[in-house]
């Protein structure tokens, strides 16, 4: 069953078109990777799903509900039940690790915030870092704090925009393990943007290969590996 539907979405930045009437269905409770090179439109898709960009045309549905219709945002980002992990992680530099994670819960007036935050920190082995500021953390710890911050709000969908772009191979593998386990432990639908096919192959249930704002191929890891599509074959070579 599709949880996210993009219907004939067109989008451009100024005079430069980024997405060309793109239609895409993302299945619930699965990890979908949007795979493509620079300028393929993968980050734009994520931002459109989040409601951070307004398309020129087309509709976006989350569940059965139209959240964006044409140039109109019907459902605000915070009402879409999503989490977003940015490429730069966007950890608030003036908040401690604890406050970064607790902030959203406080704003939503949740109860037992301290317990919830420490439970999350415990899951990722970050309890001892609770009072540290982002600049005092290692690259991997920052990634985990960003993931914790999103998961603590129990989103139905977690959008991840190349979150491992600046990590070394060893750390990448460790964090990828965490991401793979997210579905079992927290249950959100994951949409993961990457330009690295190895990363996609390591974690994806479903892969969408993008090229210049169009979908070239959709399928499981095995289907993508066996694809006869010229672009896909070329892309996977490197």
């Amino acid at each position: 069953m599709s949880i996210i539907k993009l219907n004939k979405i067109a989008h451009s930045y100024g005079a430069m078109p980024v997405l060309h009437h793109l239609t895409l269905n993302i299945e619930a409770n699965r990890l979908t990777c949007l795979l493509g090179g620079s300028g393929s439109g993968k980050t734009t898709i994520l931002r459109l799903i989040a409601g951070l960009e307004i398309p020129e045309n087309g509709q976006i549905f989350i569940g059965d509900k139209a959240v964006t219709d044409g140039q109109q945002i019907i459902v605000a980002p915070h009402q879409r039940d999503i989490g977003f992990i940015f490429q730069d992680l966007a950890l608030w530099p003036h908040f401690t690790v604890y406050k970064n994670i607790a902030f959203g819960l406080t704003e939503r007036k949740e109860e037992n915030i301290k317990d919830t935050v420490f439970k999350m920190l415990g899951f990722f082995g970050l309890q001892s870092e609770a009072e540290k500021y982002p600049h005092q953390l290692s690259g991997g710890q920052k990634q985990l704090v960003a993931i914790s911050r999103s998961l603590v709000l129990k989103p139905k969908i977690l959008l991840m925009d190349e979150p491992l772009a600046n990590l070394d191979v060893k750390l990448k593998r460790k964090i990828l393990e965490h991401i793979k386990n997210l579905k079992q432990n927290f249950g959100p639908t994951l949409v993961y943007v990457t330009h690295d096919h190895k990363e996609a192959f390591a974690i994806a249930d479903q892969i969408v290969v993008l090229n210049e704002g169009k979908i070239e191929e959709t399928g499981t890891v095995e289907q993508i590996k066996r694809s006869e599509n010229k672009f896909v074959k070329y892309f996977l070579e490197y």
Partner: peptide
């Protein structure tokens, strides 16, 4: 992104001004 992540978390505009 520091503002956008707070938007997604449902923080109101004035709270984002005040807290971020």
């Amino acid at each position: 992104s520091l503002d956008e992540v707070a938007q997604i978390e449902g923080v109101t505009f004035f709270r984002r001004l005040l807290k971020i």
